[in-house]
Simulated assay, not measured.
Amino acid sequence: MGRVAMARCARQARPRRCPARHRRWHRRDVQADTLERWLILAGIFLVDGQVVAGVLGDGGGVGRIGTAELMTFAGYFAAFVGSVISTYELFERAERAMQIARGRNEELQREVVVRKRAEEESRQLALIDPLTNIYNRRGFTALAAHVREIARRQQRPIHVLLIDLDRFKRINDAFGHAVGDKALVEFAQILTATFRKSDVVARTGGDEFCVLLAEPVDGIQTAMARLRQNVDDSNGAGTRSYRLEFSIGVARAMPNDDDSIHALVEMADEAMYEEKRLREGAA
Rank of each mutant, 00 (worst) to 15 (best):
Q155S: 09
G236N: 14
A53W: 01
F246A: 06
G219V: 01
V52C: 08
R8T: 06
S122A: 14
C210F: 03
M1A: 13
W25V: 15
V231Y: 11
A145I: 01
P15S: 13
A20M: 04
L161F: 15
N105K: 12
M1W: 07
M224G: 01
W38H: 06
S83E: 12
Q189A: 15
V113C: 00
A10N: 03
M224D: 01
G103I: 01
E120A: 06
F80D: 07
R156F: 01
P130H: 02
V217H: 02
D257L: 01
F91G: 01
L41W: 08
V160R: 04
H177Y: 06
V250I: 09
T192Y: 03
R138G: 01
I44D: 12
L213G: 00
A42E: 08
A237M: 10
N136D: 02
M254C: 04
G139Y: 02
G75Y: 08
V52K: 08
R21L: 12
R123D: 04
A42P: 01
V113W: 00
V113Q: 04
F77H: 13
L46G: 12
A174D: 11
S241D: 12
I248T: 14
V62T: 09
F140D: 04
L41K: 08
A237S: 15
V200Q: 03
G281T: 07
D181M: 12
D218E: 09
G180S: 06
R28V: 05
R17T: 13
R23L: 07
R153A: 11
T192W: 03
A237G: 07
G75L: 15
L41I: 08
Q99F: 05
K169N: 07
A118E: 10
R115K: 09
V250A: 03
F73D: 13
G139H: 02
A178S: 13
A214R: 03
E215H: 05
I100T: 14
D48C: 03
F175A: 08
G60W: 05
R3E: 14
R152Y: 02
A145W: 02
E186H: 14
G2W: 05
G2E: 11
V185A: 14
F168H: 08
D269P: 01
G281C: 03
V114W: 00
P255S: 04
A42H: 15
I248Q: 06
R110Y: 00
S241C: 05
F45E: 03
F73T: 15
G49L: 12
H26D: 07
D259A: 15
G103D: 06
F45T: 08
